[in-house]
């Protein structure tokens, strides 16, 4: 299936990329850790469309070789090895494991191929450049807005934190930012942190068990809302899924703002969140890639170019511009 996927993508991309005639060919090897939610799908879509758009303007003809590692760090290392052997001009990789990706970065460096970590930073080796969402800022803006909201409403928050995968740098950044802001806020305390490994099943059982162990909990922080339905299911089971204003309401701060979260926020169930702007990430990644293709400075301080997310609230959720996750209607 992976091979088939690869072949399909590669074939499709090659056909698409052979159209412009005189531009300089620039082959990008794109290594996904997994295609487990809408985000990577959107990223890939935006990367390819931006590549075509910005590429045409800059006379760079983007070609794509894409593979997916199905959430297996070992497989991702092998996939990147493949890309190196094919002699691509740039590798863009979203790491499954923040530490393990270091070896692949070193291998690419030895082969003289520039390496862009995308979305998830390496914790061990510095790549040529890192492009992603500013996940620390994301957690920070959400946490600050949440603290302000609760203070405003005169609520003392006792929160359950659903962490992401402990090997995901973004997940850890969001958690770190959350704690930095809330721990000394005097308004919000975190009763328990539940690691989910990004598994929806654990989002559900983690919520259920945490509520059992902490019946006085009245708020939650979600490291991502892609599996919101599982959290919703758990809260419904505990009879705690209610919109703001209802006595049973659990105050929820969230990250990413996936389509279900948009609906839930519009319905009053989620209070604040910070978007994870797939489009902005892709735009930035392609800008940097073009600079690299031309051998120019990408202007990334410390080799890191981050795109910030935007704060979403029940008030502005209907009007935020260019929100990929909001159904167009």
């Amino acid at each position: 299936m992976r091979v088939l996927n690869k072949a399909l993508f590669a074939a499709g991309c090659m056909i698409a990329a052979t159209l412009p005639a005189h531009a300089k060919d620039f082959t990008v090897g794109l290594s996904w850790n997994a295609m487990d939610n809408q985000l990577p799908v959107k990223w890939q879509e935006y990367l390819q469309s931006e590549g075509a758009k910005q590429g045409a303007a800059a006379d760079v003809n983007f070609k794509w070789v894409i593979n997916v590692a199905d959430a297996d760090p070992t497989r991702q290392a092998a996939n990147i090895e493949d890309l190196i052997n094919q002699g691509v001009d740039l590798i863009i990789a979203r790491a499954e494991d923040a530490a393990a990706i270091g070896a692949s970065i070193r291998a690419a460096k030895e082969a003289g191929i520039p390496f862009m970590t995308f979305d998830r930073e390496s914790s061990t080796t510095k790549p040529t450049v890192h492009v992603g969402g500013d996940s620390f800022d994301q957690g920070k803006t959400t946490a600050e807005a949440f603290v302000a909201l609760l203070k405003d409403r005169g609520v003392t928050g006792k929160c359950i934190e659903l962490q992401g995968s402990l090997t995901d740098v973004n997940a850890m950044n969001r958690s770190k930012a959350w704690h930095e802001v809330t721990d000394n806020s005097g308004v919000v305390t975190t009763l328990v942190s539940v690691p989910t490994e990004w598994n929806p099943d654990l989002f559900r059982s983690g919520t259920v068990n945490a509520l059992r162990a902490n019946p006085d909990a009245n708020c939650m922080f979600l490291a991502s809302d892609f599996a919101l339905s599982a959290v919703q299911s758990a809260l419904e089971g505990a009879d705690r899924w209610a919109p703001r204003g209802d006595a049973k309401h659990v105050w929820i701060a969230t990250q990413d703002v996936f389509p279900e979260a948009v609906t839930a926020m519009q319905g009053g169930f989620i209070d604040v969140g910070t978007t994870y702007d797939a489009y902005a990430h892709a735009q930035e990644a392609i800008r940097v890639a073009i600079e690299l293709a031309k051998g120019e400075d990408a202007n990334c301080p410390d080799g890191v170019c981050l795109a910030k997310g935007r704060l979403a609230t029940q008030e502005n959720i209907g009007t935020l511009e260019n929100l990929w996750s909001r159904p167009a209607n």
């Binding site: 799908v41 997916v68 339905s229 299911s233 089971g237 279900e260």
Partner: peptide
């Protein structure tokens, strides 16, 4: 095990798909 999971991933594009609200509420 490997093949069937592959087919399912292909069908879903490996993406998380929420259930219709009416069905989801059956869970509790």
């Amino acid at each position: 095990m490997i093949a069937l999971r592959g087919v399912a991933l292909q069908l879903t594009n490996a993406v998380l798909i929420p259930l219709p609200e009416s069905v989801r509420s059956l869970g509790n």
